[in-house]
Amino acid sequence: MKTLSLSESTLPAQIWNNAPQLENIPVIGTHSLVPAGARAVLIAPHPGDEVVACGGLLQLLSSLGHPLQLLSITDGSASHPGSRQWSEKRLSVFRPQESVEALRRLGLPMHSLKWVRGGFTDNALYDQENQLVEFISRYLRPGDVVFSTWREDGTDDHDVVGRASFRAAQQIGATFYDLPVWAWHRPEREQKQIPWERARKVRLDTWTVARKSHAAHAYASQLNGDPTMGIAPTLSPTLLERMRLPYEIVFV
């Protein structure tokens, strides 16, 4: 199965900081993405994906009073395989606590945010697409606007959850949008694989970007790898730098 750490993509010429097409992506407003009164559903393969992918958009939607639903498919406990410092048992408890703090830092209304933890095992979703479609469908309703990782993002978990979310949305009668995450950290030479014609920018102000960055730093387990096992941080300096861009990208 394909797995990837963003810290493995350390070349300066990554798509996110080198592709000339980024300058010409049309801007889209939140009202165009999520109609007034519609519920926004974010489906995250792992804890923290919601912050990295669209922590700014979630803030904007919350400020407009949209109902929010978050589905965390896995608990992210397999992020440090073989580590004694960050064992799966410890992470299964620790990472949900990190998520609570991250969502609080985003300023989301925890009293009204609907948050469901799926309990699937991360890095083991490749053969569970049909089960994921069934699970996700339980929590969707017609008229929802669903966001999840791009179906061709570049890792098994992101790709499978994206496909399952798309299929579930189609079945229920909801709108679906892709969120690229890992794709931006591919080498610049792979920029032709990005569907630029579908890309739209959601602009973020300085305060929204700052809260998003602050929320990402709630994931202490992902900011620190395990050098004794050769495990690099998942939230690498490169990723954190990209998160400070004044926009997020959605594929429509």
Score class of each variant (00 low, 15 high):
residue 199 A to C: 15
residue 113 L to H: 07
residue 96 P to E: 09
residue 83 S to A: 10
residue 73 I to R: 00
residue 96 P to C: 10
residue 96 P to Q: 11
residue 105 R to P: 00
residue 98 E to Q: 13
residue 133 V to L: 03
residue 226 D to G: 06
residue 139 Y to Q: 11
residue 122 D to I: 03
residue 45 P to R: 07
residue 108 L to H: 01
residue 249 I to M: 03
residue 201 K to Q: 14
residue 233 P to S: 03
residue 200 R to Y: 12
residue 141 R to I: 09
residue 207 W to E: 13
residue 94 F to Q: 15
residue 17 N to K: 10
residue 172 I to F: 09
residue 217 H to I: 02
residue 79 S to L: 04
residue 214 H to Q: 15
residue 75 D to C: 01
residue 175 T to G: 00
residue 91 L to T: 01
residue 130 N to M: 14
residue 124 A to R: 13
residue 170 Q to C: 09
residue 248 E to L: 00
residue 6 L to N: 07
residue 136 I to G: 02
residue 176 F to P: 03
residue 126 Y to E: 13
residue 203 R to Y: 01
residue 135 F to T: 09
residue 199 A to W: 12
residue 81 P to S: 10
residue 87 S to G: 13
residue 7 S to F: 05
residue 69 Q to P: 00
residue 173 G to A: 12
residue 124 A to N: 12
residue 58 L to A: 07
residue 54 C to W: 01
residue 91 L to G: 04
residue 183 A to R: 14
residue 59 Q to T: 07
residue 147 F to H: 02
residue 228 T to F: 14
residue 119 G to Y: 07
residue 131 Q to A: 15
residue 64 L to Y: 05
residue 37 G to D: 11
residue 40 A to L: 12
residue 223 L to A: 06
residue 32 S to P: 00
residue 222 Q to I: 05
residue 187 P to T: 06
residue 66 H to V: 10
residue 183 A to C: 06
residue 67 P to L: 12
residue 40 A to S: 11
residue 55 G to I: 04
residue 112 S to E: 12
residue 84 R to K: 12
residue 76 G to R: 00
residue 192 K to Q: 13
residue 107 G to Y: 05
residue 59 Q to P: 03
residue 109 P to L: 11
residue 60 L to G: 02
residue 221 S to F: 06
residue 43 I to G: 01
residue 161 V to L: 06
residue 207 W to N: 10
residue 28 I to S: 11
residue 89 K to C: 04
residue 82 G to N: 13
residue 159 D to I: 05
residue 200 R to C: 12
residue 138 R to P: 06
residue 74 T to V: 00
residue 12 P to H: 05
residue 235 L to F: 15
residue 192 K to H: 13
residue 65 G to H: 12
residue 15 I to A: 03
residue 228 T to C: 10
residue 170 Q to F: 02
residue 198 R to N: 11
residue 180 P to N: 06
residue 239 L to Q: 02
residue 181 V to W: 01
residue 187 P to D: 13
residue 173 G to E: 11
residue 7 S to L: 04
residue 123 N to C: 05
residue 190 E to M: 14
residue 55 G to E: 04
residue 105 R to Q: 14
residue 134 E to W: 04
residue 241 E to C: 05
residue 86 W to H: 13
residue 180 P to R: 01
residue 140 L to I: 09
residue 117 R to V: 00
residue 189 R to G: 00
residue 66 H to Q: 14
residue 192 K to G: 11
residue 96 P to L: 09
residue 217 H to N: 14
residue 44 A to N: 08
residue 25 I to D: 02
residue 185 H to T: 03
residue 195 P to K: 15
residue 147 F to K: 01
residue 3 T to W: 09
residue 182 W to P: 01
residue 197 E to P: 00
residue 193 Q to I: 04
residue 230 G to L: 08
residue 169 A to K: 06
residue 189 R to W: 10
residue 104 R to N: 09
residue 245 L to Y: 07
residue 141 R to G: 13
residue 109 P to H: 12
residue 125 L to M: 11
residue 209 V to D: 02
residue 148 S to G: 07
residue 111 H to Y: 03
residue 162 G to T: 02
residue 214 H to E: 14
residue 145 V to K: 09
residue 208 T to M: 06
residue 123 N to R: 14
residue 228 T to K: 15
residue 155 T to F: 02
residue 10 T to V: 13
